[in-house]
């Protein structure tokens, strides 16, 4: 009788007990590892972000933190985080943080507009989860360059970006898609157009 009882309780509680202990141990190890690495990761992230803002606004990145503090002021309005750059008290551009849905997850990007919001002077994707080697090619130089130095307003009206197949030669605000990654390309284009519309609406430049 006593033996059956012992066997039963070993059957019922031991697995749960074992699992709980093991989970606690491993999760504990992970938590320690996580907290040890967090400081480094955060510093790196902040550094990278500053670098991206500077790059989008076409500012020098030789001394990132210094340049960032010299040129950039952070602001927030109407749900947008933006960073305007001043050189010698003259505003040279506004950098907005935008996001949109991609194929696998959210895409985060920085766009830089000139003083009167008539030109898109910079575009950089800072975060994406697209298919590596395929949709992720939206981070490649040639792709992002297509959006840069483009006139986006004509007579107060927004000129939208549209997609063309990779073999076509794009004109004006047309962009070549990434071959085999139509969805990711479209996601970027949609994100840009939607956010540009919103920004122009909220900030009402002349």
């Amino acid at each position: 009788m006593k033996q059956t009882k012992k066997y039963l309780s070993e059957r019922k509680f031991y697995p749960v007990f074992f699992m709980v202990i093991l989970t606690v141990i491993f999760v504990g190890v992970l938590a320690v590892f996580y907290h040890l690495t967090q400081a480094r990761v955060q510093t790196y992230k902040a550094h990278q972000f500053q670098k991206m803002v500077l790059l989008t606004l076409d500012l020098p990145v030789d001394q990132i933190e210094q340049n960032y503090n010299t040129y950039i002021t952070e602001e927030s309005q109407s749900g947008f985080d933006y960073y305007f750059a001043k050189r010698n008290d003259e505003i040279i551009g506004y950098c907005f943080k935008i996001e949109g849905s991609g194929l696998w997850g959210m895409i985060n990007a920085l766009i830089a507009l000139n003083q009167d919001f008539s030109e898109l002077i910079g575009f950089r994707i800072i975060d994406q989860n697209e298919t590596p080697g395929l949709g992720a090619r939206i981070t490649e130089e040639w792709f992002q360059k297509q959006f840069q130095d483009k006139k986006i307003r004509h007579d107060g009206e927004l000129i939208k970006f549209t997609m063309v197949p990779e073999d076509d030669i794009p004109e004006n605000n047309q962009v070549q898609q990434v071959t085999g990654a139509t969805s990711s390309t479209r996601a970027v284009v949609d994100m840009l157009n939607k956010n540009l519309v919103k920004i122009i609406q909220e900030f009402k430049p002349e």
């Binding site: 190890v29 992970l30 590892f33 996580y34 690495t37 480094r40 990761v41 790196y44 990278q48």
Partner: peptide, 11 residues
Amino acid sequence: IVDLFLKAFLP
């Protein structure tokens, strides 16, 4: 652990 290590040292 691999992921955390990479994020911190080989971003």
